[in-house]
Design a protein around this nucleic acid. Structure first.
Length: 901
RNA sequence: GGGCGGCUAGCUCAGUUGGUUAGAGCGCCUGCCUUACAAGCAGGAGGCCACUGGUUCGAGUCCAGUGCCGCCCA
């Protein structure tokens, strides 16, 4: 990439940072250069992660962006600190969602999938995938996700499909897959079974109808049943009462007649009946209600299905055949009313289960489906978390995981769809089934049984079945590959709590069952991205903030920073555009700081530096005086602390802490104090002095600290800063992450800069409170008992003049009465002022006195308490004494000043 | 019905094992175009840490209860 022709100092930057000028090019360069390619042969320690594969037809939303930002921080950090990193990207075929999308698309051109047939339809879906599948991948590249794009996978790739078949066959062979007629959640919209997890419940106000069924052999006697779904009465095969319910003892062993149909229904006794609900008598419809289905099994009742795949009444519904379930309901009620069999109707609110996909009310339906037996799989998955092989962070999610796993039900994995992994089962002439890795293998099995294959199973597998294999199917399983050996189990999974059960739990179960190992050692669960009103972002609400739009407008770095800085560990992000704009100004600050450093270096005539100059850990002394400047000692010490905090925070997934630490350091320490102090020693034409070398090293190290969080601007500036440095890394992403070294701490420098900052701040404050002209140099005296303060006053006169516009004399001891105007812990400060300012001084000091006296009173009371001095640890008591002494000293000095002026 | 989380400045949120006068960003007020940045600089105001009780020498932090908000499961 030759965006930057070599120049003496490649730092002639525009005044304002414009991310759109640099980001797309760097994003492309990172991919082209293959900087993030994983090396299975590396002997470095490994850090690996697979991306939660987004839907292949999807577009990047803020949730992806948030997750990607966090992961990218971790991955770039791991890479910079010398790990062999694999970040494996890819996409998911998203069975139902994609099939619906393509069906809708085809419908617009008047094409019906049932007319064109399975094969033609699948061709259309693949076309669609080729056409739109690249979008989200391109967006991930654009926002700088440092994935190994050479390893991109898709859940329907040949290799992954083979893994799906292999897994299914192995589960079948172990008796962990079974097929049978059971009640499942049926989505009449997509006309497929769906799993329990794909049903979303919401309360809906409806009616509770009380229907009267005539008792047989007892003329004129009725029993009344309560139901929310009168149309299902067409499929009733019994009525039930609780065995201990005395009210209905006389009905035991009797029968009733089902109105409209005329069928005779036995009265059964079963404890599933709640005597408190309705009348205490319930109609039993085994084909259309889960608990009725179970009761039907217990009592050997017939199961009469009256609804078809689209929830219309079928031929078993007699005169109602062909009616939609809601129309049928109205007709049934009307007809019963006409017969006087509707006793009454009450308003009733119940929870309606809706399909996550179609939004239609789910219909409990008996059908033949494939299930994974989950109990033993779940037990192993629970154990793996209990014994710490996999750690869930933050740990509150562990409880949810255990709770769900312990109450898990068998997993319905068959879907009546076309787009997905077709179940590797073949039907034989005698109605039996073989499960096999291939049609040939199936034929062999059939032959052994003396049978012929009639056809292959038409159902496909739940999308989450293939997603459940993702951590190892993507690395070549079931073969024993180099990647699997190097990178599996993966180190970390970063994902949202919304798919903890859908995905994480299934990966745990299938991973352990197939590979004998946990799929990942740590799971970090992040929160949701919400809008400014804390609402979930959704297309239907129209409140989505498009990450790509924000990226184009403010820069990826700003969007990433806003996302990670806005969320405490594991908590939701409330995202406002102003916040993103705020971090663009931070990027601009960095840009200008580097612009200034570059310009100044150019003026100084320094243009070439060595890697050693950049990697310096100890500041160099001034060539003439042989002394290391206070500013340099201080910034090197601060860099050490910040490196420590940043490393610790990233390691522990405290991303918001990384963000705020770096933000504060760069802006309020590096820019506000370090650069300002260094300006004092800037000279033209002096070349690359030691002072410059120190600044260069500090600047470069700051960029490296920031890189994982703000990859684009730091890459760009780092490339410019090091353009003429021989032997440097190709990219900042491949340079080292700053590590704290014990010897780099300089507590004396930190103390002295603290004093300097105190003097400057107190002076500025006085200046503002007293209304002194901003740049008028004032004279004054600093009184202190502390030798360190007097040394700073004597040694940092230039800094005080520049930063506080003041010339100070040091004076040992207390200030004479009335001379000082400000009283800090370590010093009194006096300025030479005209008389007229005295009242302002008085106001200011009196304002300070009140809270100080309150605090002193509290401290005094505490120290007077013998329980405190007796029981609290000595260090706490000592520090309380010191604090009180400080309060009292300041109060006394302020009072002294007040009475003297 | 069972479970989980939250309640701290006008807004969005930090606050590690209990220990000085509770922090940040944004917003607000005042003054500055100081030779990197007005997307800037300097200064400032603003808080019964939801409520009640308890443990403790000491509670935003630990315990119990109450209220409100949100989420998950049935």
């Amino acid at each position: 990439m030759d965006l930057w022709p070599p120049c003496a100092v490649c730092m002639r930057l525009e005044k304002a940072y414009d991310p759109s000028q640099i980001e797309p090019a760097w994003a492309e360069w990172w991919v082209q250069e293959g900087l993030f390619r994983a090396d299975p042969e590396s002997d470095k320690p490994v850090f690996s992660l697979v991306i939660p594969p987004p839907n292949v037809t999807g577009a990047l939303h803020m949730g992806h962006m948030f997750e990607t930002s966090q992961v990218d921080i971790t991955m770039r950090w791991q890479r910079m600190r010398g790990r062999s990193v694999l970040w494996l990207p890819g996409t998911d075929h998203a069975g139902i969602a994609t099939q619906m999308l393509v069906e809708r698309h085809l419908a617009k051109s008047g094409i019906d999938r049932l007319e064109i047939g399975r094969d033609r339809f699948l061709e259309h879906v693949w076309d669609w995938k080729e056409h739109f599948g690249g979008r989200i991948v391109g967006q991930l590249k654009r926002v700088g996700a440092s994935c190994d794009w050479t390893r991109e996978r898709f859940t329907m790739d040949t290799g992954l499909s083979r893994a799906v078949t292999e897994c299914f066959v192995r589960l079948w062979e172990r008796g962990l897959v079974y097929r049978g007629e059971y009640m499942v959640n049926w989505d009449p919209g997509t006309r497929t079974a769906i799993s329990d997890l794909e049903v979303e419940y919401s309360p809906k106000v409806g009616s509770l109808w009380y229907l009267r069924y005539p008792v047989e052999g007892s003329d004129g006697e009725f029993i009344t049943v309560a139901t929310t779904r009168p149309e299902t009465m067409l499929g009733d095969t019994a009525v039930a009462v609780h065995p201990a319910d005395e009210r209905f003892r006389h009905l035991h062993g009797r029968s009733v007649t089902l109105p409209l149909v005329g069928r005779s229904l036995p009265v059964i006794c079963d404890e599933f009946v709640d005597p408190e609900f309705g009348t205490g008598v319930v109609k039993v419809t085994p084909a259309h209600d889960p608990s009725d289905f179970a009761a039907g099994q217990r009592h050997g009742l017939k199961c009469i299905t009256v609804l078809d795949e689209e929830a219309r009444i079928n031929s078993a519904g007699g005169q109602y055949e062909g009616l939609d379930r809601y129309k049928a309901r109205a007709r049934v009620v009307r007809d019963l009313e006409a017969l006087g069999l509707v006793d009454r109707v009450e308003q009733y609110t119940n929870n309606i289960g809706r399909s996550q996909r179609s939004g239609l009310a789910v219909e409990p339906r008996v059908s033949t489906q494939w299930f994974v037996r989950t109990r033993t799989l779940a037990e192993e998955a629970i154990r793996a978390v209990e014994d710490g092989r996999t750690q869930i962070i933050p740990d509150q999610w562990q409880r949810n995981y255990f709770e769900w796993m312990r109450n898990i039900r068998d997993w319905c994995v068959s879907r009546q769809l076309w787009w997905g992994h077709r179940i590797p089962a073949w039907h034989l002439e005698d109605g039996s089934i073989v499960v096999a890795r291939s049609e040939r293998e199936a034929r062999e099995q059939a032959t052994r049984r003396g049978q012929q294959i009639t056809h292959r199973e038409t159902d496909v597998l739940d999308t989450w079945f293939s997603s459940g294999l993702w951590p190892f199917s993507t690395m070549g399983w079931p073969d024993d590959t180099e990647d699997l050996r190097a990178f599996y189990p993966t180190s970390l999974l970063n994902t949202g709590f919304d798919i903890l059960f859908f995905w994480v739990a299934r990966m745990m179960m299938l991973g352990l069952a197939m590979t004998g190992e946990v799929p990942f050692h740590k799971v970090f669960i992040h929160g949701l991205v919400r809008d400014a009103d804390k609402q979930k972002m959704s297309k239907t609400k129209g409140n989505v903030i498009d990450p790509i739009k924000m990226t184009d407008q403010y820069g990826t770095d700003a969007v990433r920073f806003a996302l990670v800085a806005s969320a405490g560990q594991g908590s939701d992000v409330v995202l406002k555009e102003e916040r993103i704009a705020g971090y663009r100004t931070f990027a601009n600050k960095i840009w200008n700081a580097l612009r200034f450093v570059g310009m100044s270096l150019e003026k100084a005539g320094a243009d070439v530096w060595t890697p050693e100059d950049l990697a310096r850990f100890e500041p160099l002394p001034d060539e003439e005086t042989g002394v290391v400047s206070l500013a340099d000692r201080w910034i090197f010490s601060r860099l050490r602390s910040v490196a420590e905090e940043a490393n610790d925070a990233i390691e522990a997934f405290r991303y918001h802490e990384v963000a705020s630490t770096l933000y504060h350091f760069f802006w309020h320490e590096f820019c506000d104090w370090y650069i300002e102090l260094k300006k004092l020693s800037f000279r033209s034409g002096g070349g690359l002095t030691n002072g410059w070398k120190n600044m260069l090293a500090a600047t470069e190290r700051s960029l490296r600290l920031l890189h994982p969080v703000m990859p684009f601007i730091t890459e760009d500036l780092w490339q410019r800063l090091t353009a003429n440095t021989p032997g440097r890394a190709r990219s900042i992403a491949l340079s080292g992450y700053p590590q704290p070294r014990e010897g780099d701490a300089d507590p004396l420098a930190e103390r002295d800069v603290g004093i300097l900052q105190g003097l400057v701040t107190v002076t500025r404050n006085l200046r503002s409170e007293l209304g002194l002209p901003v740049r008028e140099v004032v004279q004054g005296t600093v009184h202190s008992h502390d030798q360190a303060v007097l040394e700073v006053v004597a040694g940092e006169g230039d800094a005080l003049l520049k930063l506080a516009a003041a010339r100070f004399q040091g004076s040992h001891g207390k200030a004479p009465a009335g001379h000082a105007l400000a009283h800090a812990t370590e010093f009194d400060l006096g300025l030479d002022l005209a008389e007229g300012r005295k009242q302002a001084v008085r106001d200011k000091l009196e304002k300070q006195l009140a809270p100080l006296e309150k605090a002193a009173l509290r401290a005094r009371r505490r120290l007077a308490n013998p329980h405190f001095t007796g029981k609290a640890p000595a260090r706490v008591v000592d520090s309380a004494r010191a604090t009180l002494a400080d309060y009292e000293s300041r109060i006394e000095r302020i009072r002294g000043t007040l009475s003297a002026i």
